[in-house]
Design a protein around this nucleic acid. Structure first.
Length: 480
RNA sequence: GACCCCUUCGUCUAGAGGCCUAGGACACCGCAUUUUCAUUGCGGCAACACGGGUUCAAAUCCCGUAGGGGUCACCA
């Protein structure tokens, strides 16, 4: 019965970050997997902000998380839920448990407990609350202490969960103490809040980092006491830095917006994150649509993965090549305008757009793309970088001058024809192509690296091309 | 320390007892193409942590060992 019900039940997943900072790359991966699983099953993907710790929760962080998810295209169903705002409900559940005798008030002070903990640690024993108030009469309660509410955890037996990723995992109840569910000030602890919220939100699949795996067994105690259905769990392996150590804020974990600022495209980040821990045979380039179709929790690996910038970069280069010229130009142009302080040539934007096909083959990220596109937008006369200057040696200038003369008579100003013209000139003059193309490149772009010079000339058009060549010839004549 | 999880090329991974003299991708190294830089194509280097079992047969199953990670709060 239960099984058939589950089969037809709509899947509901959630991403539940705490707003203590930016959306870091590991969190983004968790969000992605939750999103993908929900979409794969035709279910819902919800966002819950775990902001019960008022000291550490910041509105800035909430905004950063939401904008990061938006950038990645991980849209959640419905409005984000604030856990803090549900504190009343959490307290209600705790008191319910209290009334049913499944939880009890504990009057130990934090000081007493930390003293106990210190002793336990000194003796090399694990700190577990000893249950001193579990069966103690309330009349013995000391004055002036706000009690916490602790759950009456099972003391014998064990709990086994069938984790979708980790498989069957069992923990003995001897490992679980009567932990606090409601603090002295009446606010819920994380353990209570997650369980109540996941239940109330109708979460069917809890997909989270495996740092929560052992917590799950504590949460199971709450589910049992409440008599609630338990969701299916899937604990995904954590992300490590390039050195194999856990990724943390002070250790290589950057906010998702940092990757955007480094010039990564969201589809590249998505594809990269997807392949970290999940795979579908030998497939590497996987679109969002394809990912939704293929993704399943059973295909997630168990081992932790290291973050590899090189692979992300290569994926990014791939997606830049796939992106439309319009989109790339829209993204690139603001960088160019800023760099040139608004002083761009009038045809600049069109030239960048028209040259995009070959510019994008050469870029690993958007910053590089903007940089390599810049020469199209620079106003005349172009500044020459040192290597360009070197190509405009006496010999280079001489070749350029001769070729310039031929160029003025060219009417069919296409890359193809310009190329053929240069070849012919080279043969006639006994000059190698490189000796013609390199000085030309310098004159046209001010640099030593660019797309094919004849393509550049055709995009720039005859007037601009000849103008740039003349600028170079004049400048060198003055210098020499 | 206790408990839990993990372990295939440098990295991400394929692999669900014979198809594996272990496949793909990134990185790296060659070669080809070439007006620079890229792209592209081809080729190369390179791994089943270790030790015991089980089996006709193990990267795949079992048990140890080692290494790595996680959790042990009135944080989330």
């Amino acid at each position: 019965m239960k099984e058939s019900k589950r089969l037809t039940m709509t899947v509901v997943t959630r991403f539940a970050p705490s707003p203590t900072g930016f959306l870091h790359i590991g969190g983004a991966r968790t969000a992605l997997f939750n999103y993908l699983y929900a979409k794969h099953t035709g279910g819902k993907f919800l966002l819950r902000i775990e902001d019960t710790d008022r000291e550490r929760s910041k509105q800035d962080a909430v905004d950063a998380i939401i904008s990061g998810m938006k950038w990645l295209g991980l849209d959640c169903d419905g409005d984000p839920i604030s856990q803090f705002e549900r504190a009343g409900r959490h307290a209600e559940v705790a008191h319910d448990l209290l009334a049913q005798g499944k939880a009890y008030k504990c009057y130990c002070t934090p000081e007493e407990l930390s003293a106990q903990r210190a002793t336990a640690k000194a003796e090399g024993k694990p700190m577990r609350y000893n249950g001193m108030w579990r069966d103690r009469d309330q009349s013995e309660a000391p004055d002036g202490v706000d009690p916490v509410i602790r759950i009456k955890a099972e003391q014998t037996g064990a709990t086994t969960i069938e984790d979708k990723i980790q498989g069957s995992v069992t923990v003995s109840h001897a490992e679980i103490d009567d932990f606090v569910i409601l603090r002295g000030d009446g606010t819920p602890t994380y353990m209570l809040a997650v369980v109540v919220d996941d239940h109330d939100m109708g979460i069917t699949h809890v997909v989270r980092g495996d740092d929560h795996l052992t917590n799950t067994f504590r949460q199971m105690q709450i589910y049992s006491a409440l008599g609630w259905d338990k969701p299916t769990f899937a604990h995904m392996p954590l992300l490590h830095g390039a050195d194999g150590k856990k990724l943390s804020k002070r250790h290589g974990a950057l906010g998702i917006e940092a990757y955007r600022d480094m010039g990564f495209l969201p589809e590249a980040v998505n594809n990269y994150l997807l392949r970290l821990g999940w795979s579908h045979g030998d497939d590497e380039i996987i679109s969002r649509e394809q990912a939704i179709e293929w993704f399943d929790l059973g295909d997630v690996g168990k081992g932790a993965a290291r973050f590899d910038m090189d692979k992300l970069t290569s994926l990014n280069a791939h997606y830049i090549r796939e992106a439309s010229n319009d989109r790339l130009t829209d993204m690139t142009w603001p960088f160019i305008e800023e760099k040139l302080e608004g002083k761009t040539s009038s045809g600049g934007r069109d030239w960048v757009l028209n040259g995009m096909n070959s510019l994008k083959d050469r870029a690993k990220n958007m910053l590089e793309l903007a940089e390599s596109a810049e020469f199209y937008a620079r106003p005349r006369p172009l500044e020459m970088n040192p290597k360009a200057l070197k190509m405009l040696s006496e010999e280079g200038i001489e070749n350029l001058k001769q070729f310039r003369a031929i160029l003025s008579d060219v009417t069919d100003w296409t890359g193809e024809n310009l190329n053929a013209t240069a070849k012919q000139f080279g043969e006639d003059a006994g000059v190698k192509m490189g000796k013609i193309a390199q000085p030309l490149r310098a004159a046209l772009t001010g640099t030593n690296v660019s797309p094919g010079v004849f393509e550049v000339m055709s995009i720039l058009g005859k007037t601009e091309s000849l103008g740039r060549i003349d600028d170079a010839l004049n400048a060198q004549t003055l210098n020499n």
